[in-house]
Design a binder for these strands. Structure first.
Length: 712
DNA sequence: AGCACGCCGACT
DNA sequence: GTCGGCGTGCTC
């Protein structure tokens, strides 16, 4: 429809009362004669003629609503939650003497209809309603608002993540009628957990229990999640589970179909195209489907009357969104569970520090099996340490220690054997082959790396090292770098010529492998499941996983080892895992004892002592030095806030990425930390300071990130 | 961000 | 007079 503005002293025609109403506001505020705009032949809506609109622009000082007039012909469609287009921008202002087109058309969401506006100026009209579909319901709006606040981001940015792009064809189709709630399911393998059946019962009865679930190793977790969701559906409520990748989503999807049959649930992953995905999303938003399984973006799925949010493997990095304001699925689901009667289930075979904290703080209860069940389900774990490896002659030549060799040979007699190899380019620290002393830069003592598997470069100062020798023993050979999956596969293939070798990695990920003897070489996270469980697993180059200079290195190594070991048969069925790593290392010990919770709790205690997240909340401020300094000077941080740095933020050890400082420029990074409970105050202070800065457009912009991923 | 407004100096 | 430099501030 046309939205031509026409400036004249009187409304051309239409609804003078409403325009008078708008004008009255103008007069009361004693604003210089701004004439209300009218548009040819258009009348205003009789009731609630003002539409409060969130304009789709990310800038923080624009994180506010704007009022528009609702033309009569849009009255019916212009309901809260619909997508609209409006004219917005300086170009839309009244220009002395002439008529002029408004600013550019931009997208927005209609937030609410009101009787009047408190804006003391003339209202422009909604240009049009994109579609009458009400995609932004009150709950999704409230959640998005809370996420924006939590992460010091703008509502518009969050909505970009929360509401999928429109697809007209998908909207045109009606969604199926909702099915009646299914009966409550039997507990199934939840019986293995003392609190399992009780947890399901609470869900089925409409309760909102919150649990951190340490899943037993083995193949049952998708089915267990499906049963928890089914129990929630039985109470007449909806349920949502978020998993790290499409493969896991497929598994839970299949389990849900087994438990519920078809028609109860939707699969929300990026793998399905935009149209299909939006169709599924609409089915959820329209209330015709009440259970959702999906990957990251599904965390916002507008499930009606949500009774359970579940998350699998919260340590997986894909649960952290890579768009501003970088929300983490766990945090978003926590926010969802905190509203209304919504249960919370955080599951995994390992345990993150954050999960341990949820239990420690009393927010969630632990859901764990006792030792007896664990002995049945978990494989035997044995270690080959550095010392042994160095003494083991066979290992030096074939890169396979004797114990590992035997384990593979024995395992292959009864089934497939998994070999986990770190990804190439995993940037491990190099060490002297003879004495294991880390190889350090002679100028700055930074760790040496071989990014191209060839030349040595310091990860800190970037200087090349052409003639390295060990500072401790004078050795001149470095320990073998990470050998890629392909080469490992070739070596093993030669060692066991009669056995098929399969690889699974970044390029092609295998979903599952059959039961027969085979060597399956995989990078972490890409391990296929074996139908009857692996007979054995070999975790190679463990030192590379723990040696990374990252606060989470230990937790992450344990998570990946545990994930692989969980695919191996239980010890009673002969399942064995050999890990090539120093047995004194804390995560290695935790794997041997199969105690991820103990590991996480110890890490948590340490973080508390050091004032590290998640015990305190941190934010990073990054940008050109002057900008960071000016920002920090202008920010009114809460009194408890502590500023660390700023320090030059060259990001060592990895190639330049988008978002890093431009080449030739050094950015600085300051960390700001606050004690527990002051996270919200910190976020709002950071956001206010940012808004003030961008509004004045003073100096270079800085980047704010709550919960920065790479500290330490 | 984008864009118009305005206040200033230099010019046919 | 008036053209156009860019510094400031607004966008319903």
């Amino acid at each position: 429809m046309s939205s031509d503005d026409e400036r004249s002293d009187e409304p051309a025609s239409g609804a003078p009362e409403q325009l008078a109403l708008i004008r009255e506001t103008v007069r009361r505020a004693k604003v210089p004669r701004a004439k209300p705009r009218t548009w040819r032949g258009a009348a205003l809506a009789g009731k609630l003629p003002v539409a409060r609109v969130l304009v789709n622009k990310g800038a923080l000082h624009l994180d506010q609503y704007f009022d528009y007039a609702v033309p009569e012909e849009l009255d019916a469609d212009a309901q809260p939650g619909v997508r609209v287009r409006v004219r917005f921008g300086a170009g839309g202002r009244q220009v002395r003497g002439g008529r002029r087109e408004g600013g550019g058309l931009i997208d927005g969401f209609l937030i609410e209809r009101r009787e009047s506006s408190d804006y003391q100026g003339a209202l422009a009209a909604l240009a049009y309603v994109v579609s009458p579909e009400r995609v932004l319901g009150p709950e999704l709006l409230e959640l998005s608002r809370a996420v924006a606040d939590r992460y010091a981001g703008s509502l518009a940015d969050v909505l970009q993540l929360a509401v999928p792009p429109r697809n007209g064809r998908a909207e045109g189709r009606p969604s199926p009628a909702p099915l009646p709630p299914p009966p409550a399911p039997a507990p199934g393998t939840w019986e293995r957990y003392a609190q399992g059946p009780g947890f399901l019962r609470a869900l089925a009865e409409g309760g909102a229990p919150r649990a951190v679930w340490t899943a037993l190793p083995g193949p049952h977790w998708p089915e267990e999640i499906a049963r928890a969701m089914a129990a929630t559906l039985a109470s007449g409520r909806g349920a949502l589970v978020v998993v790290p990748d499409g493969r896991s989503a497929g598994r839970v999807d299949a389990a849900l179909t087994d438990v519920l049959g078809d028609g109860h649930h939707a699969l929300l992953t990026a793998d399905s195209g935009p149209e299909k995905r939006y169709r599924q999303w609409l089915a959820v938003a329209r209330g015709s489907v009440r259970a959702v399984v999906g990957t990251r973006a599904a965390m916002f799925a507008p499930v009606a009357d949500l009774g359970l949010v579940a998350l699998w493997d919260d340590g997986d990095s894909s649960h952290s969104d890579d768009n501003a304001p970088f929300p983490h699925v766990r945090e978003v689901l926590e926010l969802r569970a905190a509203h209304g009667r919504c249960a919370f289930l955080l599951g995994g075979t390992s345990c993150t520090v954050e999960a341990a904290q949820l239990v420690e703080s009393g927010w969630a209860l632990p859901l764990r099996a006792d030792r007896d069940q664990l002995r049945i389900a978990a494989p035997l774990v044995r270690t080959v340490g550095d010392g042994e490896l160095a003494r083991d002659g066979a290992a030096r030549s074939a890169r396979l220690p004797s114990l590992a060799w035997q384990t593979v040979r024995d395992g292959l007699r009864t089934g497939p054997v998994l070999v986990q190899v770190p990804r190439r380019g995993y940037a491990p620290r190099l060490a002297c082959e003879r004495c294991r002393e880390p190889a350090r830069c002679r100028h700055c003592a930074g760790p040496l790396q071989a990014p191209d598997q060839q030349d040595l470069v310091c990860a800190w100062c970037g200087r090349a090292e052409t003639a390295w020798s060990c500072a401790a023993c004078g050795g001149v050979r470095l320990r073998a770098q990470i050998v890629g999956a392909r080469r490992t596969a070739e070596e093993l293939g030669r060692a066991f010529p009669a056995v098929p070798v399969r690889t699974s990695g970044r390029d092609h990920v295998l979903d599952s492998v059959p039961d027969g003897p085979a060597l399956v070489v995989s990078t972490p996270g890409a391990e296929p499941v074996a139908e009857g469980g692996y007979a054995a697993a070999l975790l190679l180059d463990g030192w590379a996983m723990v040696g990374r200079p990252d606060l989470r290195a230990g937790e992450e190594a344990l998570r990946r080892w545990t994930a692989a070991a969980a695919l191996v048969r239980g010890q009673p069925d002969g399942g064995t895992v050999v890990i090539v790593a120093e047995p004194t290392l804390r995560p290695v010990q935790a794997l041997v004892r199969w105690d991820p919770v103990g590991h996480a709790r110890r890490e948590l205690a340490e973080r508390a002592e050091l004032g590290f997240p998640p015990v305190s909340r941190m934010a990073s401020v990054t940008g050109p030095p002057e900008a960071v300094a000016a920002y920090l000077a202008g920010a009114e941080l809460p009194p408890e806030a502590e500023v660390l740095g700023p320090v030059p933020g060259a990001t060592p050890g990895r190639p330049r990425r988008q978002g890093d400082a431009p080449p030739g420029e050094t950015w600085e990074r300051a960390l700001v930390r606050v004690p527990p409970g002051r996270g919200a105050a910190l976020a709002s202070a950071l956001k206010a300071a940012q808004a003030a800065r961008t509004a004045r457009s003073s100096g270079d912009p800085v980047r704010i990130r709550i919960d920065p991923p790479d500290i330490g």
